[in-house]
Simulated scan of single mutants.
Amino acid sequence: MIAEHPPASVPDFAALRHCWHPVAYTHAVKDTPHHTRLLGEDLVIWRDSGGTPHALRDLCIHRGTALSLGRVVGDRIMCPYHGWQYGSDGVCTHIPQLEDPTKVPGKARVDAFATQERYGHIWVALETPARYDLPDIPELDDPDWVVVQAGPYAWNADASRQLENFTDFGHFPWVHPGLLGDPERPVVPDYSVTIDDHILRYDIVRPEAPNSDDFPVFGNETTEAPTRRSRYQLHLPYTILLRLGWGGEKGMVYFFASQPVDEDHCAGYVTIARNYDREQPASVLQDFEDTIFNQDQVVVESQRPERVPFDLAAEMHMKFDAVAINYRKAMREQGLAKRPA
């Protein structure tokens, strides 16, 4: 008889509620309410008269209508069904069916969530205080650097799977030959990972494919056997800051964050800054990222189990999987993953 193994650790949604997560690009939330999901919760993101974003549960307390179907009235969001209006704190301040519409019962309120706008994203933490600050990325505020956004990339996968794929060096020559990797040079160079609280840091100098005619996006000067130095910061739970260099003044910054929509769905946001090719159309980088993420999506959505198993014995690991090994350890040690009940 084959012994049954206990289920492997998975993301702990209760703990993840205390982290900042991206829910939309800044440009996606304008004058009308915006619906999204975070950790299985339906949210409505909207801006008040001053342009400040807010997040509420997307559910009117009266008859359960989605507030995202309504509209913004000054500093309040109005339900489309009966016209009830809610402030940024989730308190209902106006019920038009009442003789005195301001005489609102105290229990007429919906949940409100901490919200901030930074780096061209709107971020939400479902519980406060949030555990970790967002990373410091001065390049995104530097006028000498051109910023391009790509995505979001909605996948039928756990956010941890999307994040691990982004930082997995071994798959580049096989999933992205001629774009991110060279099948003739598949060996992953030695590198080491250090952990500072919730941040994993690691540098690697690795082979990459030459710039292609379709996607001339990198700063290497050679056409054969180029390499690049990649300096990574992986910020738990689902954010990566990557700085690329080719030995000269040209530099590129990748800022990636995955939104854990629910247990089996995520959305990846990519923000790129570079100090070269300033006149190149943004569509060149965006088309490149679309190609890369579409190639990855098919593979990652096939992975089983669907959610990353954070117990190391659940999958086979090699030395070149040091990022995944340390990420899974850190998620457990920081209390962001646990055995399912």
Score class of each variant (00 low, 15 high):
residue 6 P to V: 15
residue 11 P to C: 08
residue 13 F to K: 14
residue 16 L to E: 02
residue 16 L to H: 05
residue 20 W to G: 00
residue 24 A to L: 01
residue 24 A to W: 00
residue 26 T to G: 07
residue 30 K to I: 13
residue 31 D to V: 05
residue 33 P to E: 10
residue 33 P to C: 02
residue 34 H to M: 04
residue 37 R to E: 09
residue 41 E to V: 06
residue 42 D to R: 02
residue 44 V to N: 02
residue 45 I to C: 08
residue 46 W to E: 05
residue 46 W to S: 01
residue 48 D to H: 01
residue 49 S to T: 12
residue 50 G to H: 05
residue 52 T to P: 02
residue 52 T to K: 15
residue 54 H to M: 04
residue 58 D to M: 01
residue 63 R to K: 13
residue 65 T to Q: 08
residue 66 A to L: 09
residue 67 L to K: 00
residue 71 R to N: 11
residue 74 G to K: 10
residue 78 M to N: 01
residue 84 W to Y: 08
residue 84 W to I: 00
residue 84 W to G: 00
residue 86 Y to H: 02
residue 93 T to E: 10
residue 94 H to M: 11
residue 94 H to R: 13
residue 96 P to W: 15
residue 98 L to P: 01
residue 101 P to Q: 15
residue 103 K to L: 04
residue 104 V to N: 11
residue 106 G to D: 11
residue 113 F to Q: 04
residue 123 W to Y: 12
residue 126 L to K: 08
residue 130 A to F: 03
residue 132 Y to R: 09
residue 132 Y to C: 03
residue 132 Y to G: 01
residue 134 L to R: 07
residue 138 P to N: 07
residue 138 P to M: 15
residue 148 V to E: 02
residue 148 V to S: 13
residue 149 Q to V: 09
residue 149 Q to G: 07
residue 154 A to P: 02
residue 156 N to Q: 14
residue 161 R to K: 07
residue 166 F to A: 12
residue 167 T to A: 09
residue 167 T to M: 12
residue 175 V to T: 13
residue 178 G to M: 03
residue 179 L to R: 14
residue 180 L to G: 02
residue 183 P to W: 05
residue 186 P to K: 06
residue 189 P to Y: 08
residue 189 P to G: 11
residue 191 Y to A: 12
residue 192 S to Y: 13
residue 198 H to F: 06
residue 203 D to L: 04
residue 206 R to Y: 04
residue 206 R to G: 11
residue 209 A to G: 02
residue 210 P to I: 01
residue 210 P to M: 04
residue 211 N to A: 01
residue 217 V to N: 01
residue 217 V to K: 01
residue 218 F to L: 12
residue 221 E to Q: 13
residue 221 E to I: 14
residue 222 T to S: 05
residue 223 T to R: 08
residue 224 E to T: 04
residue 226 P to R: 10
residue 229 R to L: 14
residue 230 S to K: 11
residue 231 R to Q: 09
residue 231 R to K: 11
residue 232 Y to W: 10
residue 232 Y to N: 03
residue 232 Y to T: 01
residue 234 L to M: 10
residue 235 H to M: 07
residue 238 Y to T: 14
residue 239 T to L: 05
residue 242 L to P: 00
residue 245 G to S: 10
residue 253 V to P: 07
residue 253 V to Q: 06
residue 255 F to D: 00
residue 261 V to R: 01
residue 265 H to N: 08
residue 267 A to R: 04
residue 273 A to N: 03
residue 273 A to R: 04
residue 277 D to F: 10
residue 278 R to V: 06
residue 279 E to A: 15
residue 280 Q to W: 01
residue 280 Q to I: 07
residue 280 Q to V: 09
residue 281 P to N: 05
residue 285 L to H: 04
residue 286 Q to M: 09
residue 288 F to S: 00
residue 292 I to Q: 02
residue 293 F to S: 10
residue 293 F to L: 11
residue 298 V to I: 07
residue 299 V to L: 11
residue 303 Q to Y: 14
residue 304 R to G: 06
residue 306 E to K: 08
residue 308 V to L: 03
residue 310 F to S: 00
residue 310 F to W: 09
residue 311 D to M: 14
residue 312 L to S: 05
residue 313 A to E: 10
residue 313 A to G: 11
residue 313 A to I: 11
residue 313 A to D: 15
residue 314 A to D: 08
residue 318 M to L: 09
residue 320 F to M: 15
residue 320 F to L: 05
residue 324 A to S: 08
residue 324 A to N: 06
residue 327 Y to D: 00
residue 339 R to L: 12
residue 340 P to C: 14
